[in-house]
Amino acid sequence: MVTEDGVAYERRSAVPVIIPVRPRKLAEVPFVELAEGRLQGVVSSRSDPRRLYASSITARRHGLSCHTNNNRPCGSLGGGQPCKHIGALIDAAVARYGLARVAHHLEADLPEDGADLGSGLRPGTAPDRAAEVFSSFLRHLAHLDLPPSTEPLPELQWFPAAAAVR
């Protein structure tokens, strides 16, 4: 979530810009990010526990792509209709970042009747980005293997741990 309220937003050094989100369930969508002009992430298969899908939606054109970790295209993504993995990805992104930020990143028009983001997209197909999505996921997880550190990190004075949404 991006926050902008409060006085002197422009002149505050320690103004919170990214608010940490509530913990969300990760089993279905272990990874989601807004990056490289796309909403992309990793979605678990509901039928085959060994299978993961890399799903993505491009900004502006809303091209969809969904492939398995065995590099096969998702069978239910046909004719530009979102498959259930794309749907799960959108739901996870909205839970993670909030509807407004996801819509802004995708440059999508939000339907005014309160319908969900999926119905506001006019999707087409997009090139396969599975390899990039999976490697982005693994790079992200590499943080979990870094050793802790005890040297002074004065730059973290700019990053106060903010209150979560209580």
Partner: peptide, 25 residues
């Protein structure tokens, strides 16, 4: 004086569970 410990994490780790990342201390 001050003393500090830090650990890398991923964004899905937040709230009280961040302390688990500092288990080495």
């Amino acid at each position: 004086v001050r003393t500090a410990v830090a650990a890398a994490k991923v964004d899905a780790v937040s709230g009280p569970s961040v302390w688990r990342r500092l288990a080495a201390f």
